[in-house]
Amino acid sequence: MRYSINKLSKLSMLKISKEEEKMIAKKVQALGELLEKLDTVEPPKEAFVLAPEGEHKRDDVPVQFDSDEIIKVFNNVKERYLKGPKTL
């Protein structure tokens, strides 16, 4: 099994501090060992989902949620816009 902690943290957009690094590596190693057992299993063609029976769709009827309540949750707001980071 080949992975680098460095690459995985970059892909996951996680910054890892020097102090954490050893502990995380140990945990990833332990999880990786659990995965190795899967090497002998035949892979299926389709994804398997624990799908419940019956109808699970919603009607196309609008329900208004109090959007001010959501704006209250937002970190930074300017004239109802969520203020986010630069995107360049």
């Binding site: 300017k78 816009y81 969520l82 203020k83 986010g84 980071p85 630069k86 360049l88």
Partner: peptide, 12 residues
């Protein structure tokens, strides 16, 4: 512009 703006404004 996107290039000069100090932040983004997001509308969901």
């Amino acid at each position: 512009s996107r290039a000069t703006a100090r932040y983004s404004l997001i509308d969901y």
